[in-house]
């Protein structure tokens, strides 16, 4: 069984000054739903366009379903379906016509599946594309993609225009694909969606994979937050090894602790007679914010420097 997507050291420049992808690593195993997370402008869409052979990699190795997407694009595309983030279609065709055209250009679609999907996503196929809202245009692309019987689905922020009801339908559909053994690359910044659907995630930041792995892997890399009440004063807990961001109020403390230091911390807390303790593993949101937050900090610093430079 080959890997569905194997990207290593991928570099993509737009002109001499703009490096969109800077040594990206991305590995999607066959049969997994892989989350692709990152702030706007991190390079998610660029990566997917390189995977589709629409953009040419400047450096690095890209394998899609075991083939080279730049040279074998059309042949590989028979085996995958793509939902773009910004769905631009022909304004004077109807939704139904577009679904049929796209399905046929890919090598045919299943008419029963098409009807079922139209029903489940509540899409009227007789309207012209220009009369659809963003969410409905997205549904057109989703129906076209999910009516095709393919091995790999590339979904670029496919639910950004869907309402919560449709979002739930979408999640059901992806679960069914997973049960069927299909591979999915799901680019998104809706964390709840990724948490609900994905086996593994890659977090991309400024064109690099900041982290990659299962949620458990990622959690183990990240600090646990601890809220503790003790009988004796907590005092110098803030200086203990592995403890960060401690806020101590006499016998109550809120702090976070490095992954390897939790056991050690507990040992020392026992001496202070623990009354209650809550430890919570980091949520995906916290994981994401850690990287996202650095970005915000960096861009704020850049902006400040730019102002100073004037």
């Amino acid at each position: 069984m080959t890997t569905a997507i194997a990207v290593s050291g991928l570099v993509k420049d737009f002109g001499p000054r703009t490096r969109a992808l800077d040594g990206l690593e991305l590995q999607v195993e066959t049969g997994e739903v892989h989350g692709f997370l990152g702030p706007n402008g991190a390079g998610k869409t660029t990566t997917i366009r390189v995977l589709l052979g629409l953009l040419r990699a400047d450096d690095g190795h890209v394998a899609l379903l075991g083939g080279d997407p730049w040279h074998g694009a059309a042949g590989l595309h028979r085996r995958l379906a793509y939902v773009p983030g910004e769905v631009n279609l022909w304004p004077n065709l109807t939704g139904g016509e577009v679904i049929d055209v796209l399905g046929d250009l890919r090598g045919g679609l299943d008419p029963h599946r098409r009807e079922e999907l139209l029903e489940r996503l509540q899409l009227d196929p007789t309207k012209k594309i220009r009369a659809y809202s963003k969410g409905n245009r997205q549904k057109v692309a989703l129906v076209a993609a999910f009516s095709s019987d393919v091995e790999l689905y590339l979904l670029d922020e496919p639910t950004s225009g869907l309402d919560p009801l449709m979002e739930a339908v979408f999640q059901d559909l992806v679960q069914e694909l997973r049960a069927d053994g299909r591979s999915v690359l799901l680019s998104s910044h809706i964390l709840a969606e990724v948490e609900a659907l994905c086996d593994r995630v890659t977090i991309i930041r400024a064109g690099r994979a900041a982290e990659s792995g299962t949620f458990d892997d990622l959690r183990h890399l990240t600090r646990t937050s601890v809220v503790v009440d003790t009988a004796k004063p907590l005092g110098s807990v803030g200086q203990w090894p592995g403890v960060h961001d401690a806020r101590v109020h006499d016998r109550h403390a809120e702090l976070s602790v490095d992954p390897g230091e939790l056991n050690h911390l507990l040992g020392r807390l026992v001496d202070l007679d623990v009354r209650s303790i809550i430890t919570s593993p980091p949520t995906l949101e916290e994981l994401f914010m850690r990287h996202y937050g650095e970005d915000i900090a960096v861009s704020a610093r850049d902006a400040a420097e730019a102002v100073m430079a004037r």
Binding site: R49, L52, G53, L54, A73, A74, G75, H77, R78, A81, Y82, P84, E86, V87, N88, L89, W90, L102, L105, R106, G107, A141, L154
Partner: peptide
């Protein structure tokens, strides 16, 4: 430039076709 091409080339249509 408008992006319709992205949807077409995302299928099994090659650039030359």
């Amino acid at each position: 430039a408008q992006g319709e091409l992205e949807a077409v080339l995302g299928t099994a249509v090659s650039r030359v076709r």
